[in-house]
């Protein structure tokens, strides 16, 4: 038993997760069907059922630090097949949100988080996703994070191929009222 994690605070994490994911963590009886069906489980450091177990044990911080929450592809298989109707996919979302808010994102997985952030930032500014801009934005953010040139130019060869198929749109369509987007984002991020 790890006594380094004071129970009340860690339990608070579990309560926040339950509220965000609209689910009951203690319904889980650890059958492992979530992990069994997860397309990413083999690569994960902490499999889905173990993340839930950590939360049940009041060791939520270990879950927030996990790489696996960023490896999740949100395919919803876990929640669909759960015999106890635990919203495991929702728990993954909630863990990501909390992990980011508390600055605990696993360094190895920061690229995924940067992508999601770049995605949201892109739609905050344009209303709709502008793919080319997202790629550039994400590549730069990723480069700033890990300084890997190989990743920076990895998909550059794709551009002419996309262009040949008239799939490369240099100027994305934007919505007219973009100010409302910024207000929607501000209100949604506001936790008070």
């Amino acid at each position: 038993m790890n006594t380094a994690n004071p129970l009340p605070q860690a339990c608070a994490t579990a309560r926040v997760i339950e509220a965000l994911a609209h689910t009951h963590l203690y319904d889980c009886y650890q059958c492992g069907k979530c992990t069994a069906g997860c397309p990413m489980a083999a690569q994960m450091d902490i499999a889905p059922n173990r993340l839930i177990r950590l939360l049940q044990l009041g060791r939520g911080r270990e879950a927030l630090d996990a790489q696996s929450i960023w490896q999740c592809v949100s395919c919803q298989t876990c929640a669909t097949r759960c015999p106890k109707s635990v919203n495991c996919a929702g728990i993954m979302d909630a863990l990501r949100q909390l992990s980011m808010e508390e600055g605990r994102v696993s360094p190895a997985q920061r690229r995924v988080m940067l992508f999601q952030k770049a995605f949201l930032d892109n739609i905050r500014r344009n209303g709709r996703l502008h793919e080319l801009e997202l790629i550039v934005q994400f590549k730069l953010a990723g480069f700033m994070h890990d300084r890997r040139f190989s990743l920076l130019f990895k998909d550059a060869t794709l551009a002419p191929k996309l262009n040949k198929r008239k799939k490369l749109h240099l100027r994305g369509k934007k919505v007219r009222d973009r100010a409302v987007l910024r207000r929607i984002f501000a209100r949604s991020m506001d936790h008070s």
């Binding site: 492992g32 083999a42 499999a47």
Partner: peptide, 24 residues
């Protein structure tokens, strides 16, 4: 528990988990 059974190359591929080891 087992999550899914697929058929691949004439075999039934059973995808389960072992929660004691925490692995699929």
């Amino acid at each position: 528990r087992v999550s899914k059974i697929t058929q691949e190359d004439g075999k039934l591929v059973v995808r389960g988990a072992d929660t004691l080891a925490g692995v699929p």
